[in-house]
Nucleic acid binder design. Structure first.
Lengths: 237, 237
DNA sequence: TATTGCTAAATTGGATCCAATCGACAAGTA
DNA sequence: TACTTGTCGATTGGATCCAATTTAGCAATA
């Protein structure tokens, strides 16, 4: 596998490697397939909080037996995306103003650390990728895609932090935030999801100005948190 | 269930609820049993990094079939305690100087937030519990128990943060730290695990001095991180 | 009327069986 | 010799079957 990336090969293995990496992402196991699909559904809001997840029904829909479904549910439980009660079943976790505040408190703690550690090591390629994602965000309309693009933009700025566990945790919390971002978009209208903040974060990172970058990030998170909190208080009581 | 906490009841349901919560923790399913036992084993160090976990062998040892074992392994995978590779099997995650640094970076981000939010709402009972745990730590000899007591002391100070997700995440990271604390103890000798810091944290919390409390906490974490880092560099290369 | 006890259907937990995959080693080929 | 290919044992992934638990509904009783 790694041989394919070894330089100096002239037997066409690079071309094959390119073909493989361009191939549609195949799931190696049924459990992976079920887990990834359900997670997308939950994070995108298509499976709202409170939705019961019946093992047999899911097995029928996915054309698998109940066992991979159960393993997938166990993993989603460990990620706090579903509540799993013995002999009762699994239910998509409810979201609330409190949960959103929790999520933002966690992100507010983690992301500045990741950003600070990452900024000194970001290179031109990283900046270019971040720039691309901002452009994509400008032209994206679909709310589901916007959440993913937003997550990838943030992660692109943290990628060089050199702390894999910290980054994994940050990405998980960013993904969880997708569930709330949808409300944010519904409240503020599709257009702006604080693209000004994004540009300012990227600019500060380019200048290696850690202090300013973190300040912008914190302001970005605080305004988002306030918007969503206001939304919940108005709509959900 | 919630009725038990509703004020104004005079039928003794609160006393019953207390009885239930004091009852010995029984495992409701085989999966819970396997998962909790394996996690204790990993966090306590009795299952060191690199240990292969064969499904059939575990099933035999636990006197269950392979299915609850597999579900337990899935949950441990989601907690980053084991690596689960399709068709290859599960292996206890390796720990390293880098992982320890990761863990401390995360705790350094999360715990000050939890502490800050919690301090204003801590009451006399909370302080008494924390004090008790300090005393227990003074007289405890067994390394495994010390890690647990340390975790419970920290959590007792964060308990009133009113952010359940943040607290759950913090506790998870504290539990993960147990794997490193054992090295800390091996390096510094059993006696002191920075009990001075613990007393100072409690004193500052009692005075509602958030700034000083957080400063002590950060110093506490930094010295622990430095000790463990030095230990890894000396012993594990 | 409200509570209790019982029964049956639905749903999940767990066990057993079969299929798919991986790793190591042997055999064949240049 | 070095490299590729085929085979076999070990292990895991997945399907099917049975047991245990929960819950809703209904009847009986105080």
């Amino acid at each position: 596998m790694d041989d394919a990336r070894r330089p100096g090969m002239a037997d066409g293995s690079e071309a094959v490697a390119a073909l493989v990496s361009d191939a549609p992402p195949r799931y190696r196991t049924a459990t992976e397939f079920v887990e990834a699909t359900l997670r997308r559904g939950i994070l995108s809001g298509r499976l709202p909080g409170g939705t019961p997840l019946r093992q047999e029904e899911l097995a029928r829909l996915f054309n698998v037996s109940r066992m991979p479904v159960r393993e997938a549910l166990r993993q989603l439980e460990a990620q706090a995306l579903i509540d799993f009660v013995p002999h009762k079943g699994a239910v998509v976790t409810d979201i609330s103003a409190e949960d959103a505040a929790d999520n933002y408190a966690i992100r507010r703690a983690l992301e500045p650390v990741a950003f600070t550690l990452s900024i000194p090591h970001l290179d031109a390629q990283d900046f270019a990728r971040a720039e691309e994602l901002i452009v994509e965000l400008d032209s994206e309309q679909e709310p589901g895609r916007m959440g993913e693009l937003n997550r990838r933009f943030h992660m692109s700025l943290y990628a060089r932090a050199g702390r894999p566990r910290l980054l994994a945790l940050t990405e998980q919390q960013l993904a969880a935030a997708d569930r709330y971002v949808r409300f944010h978009l519904a409240a503020k209208g599709q257009e702006h999801m604080a693209q000004d903040d994004h540009r300012a974060m990227l600019a500060a990172a380019r200048e290696r100005n850690v202090e300013r970058a973190v300040a912008v990030l914190l302001g970005h998170l605080d305004t988002a948190a306030a918007t969503i909190d206001a939304f919940f208080r108005e709509w959900a009581g």
